[in-house]
């Protein structure tokens, strides 16, 4: 059984598993996407955000 077939039989065939797969993938996608963009934003603005300077004012 090929990969596509396995995926089809296990997930896409039934509505219940399909819906579950949508929710689960949305969760993981959003987490990684947010992490990536946030890191990128912090890299672009290295040294300018509060996050980068707050150590100077906190013990």
């Amino acid at each position: 059984m090929g990969f596509n077939e396995t995926v089809y039989n296990l997930i896409f065939k039934r509505t219940s598993t399909m819906a579950l797969a949508c929710v689960a993938s949305a969760f993981f996608f959003e987490r990684t996407f947010d992490l990536v963009t946030e890191n990128l934003f912090e890299k672009i603005n290295e040294g300018k955000l509060w996050k980068h300077i707050k150590d100077k004012y906190q013990q």
Binding site: F41, I44, N45, K48, L49, W50, I53
Partner: peptide, 16 residues
């Protein structure tokens, strides 16, 4: 300005 760019944040040390 250091915040002029499309993705540039404000310089928070300067804001302070």
């Amino acid at each position: 300005w250091s915040h002029s760019g499309m993705f540039s944040s404000l310089d928070h040390a300067s804001v302070r």
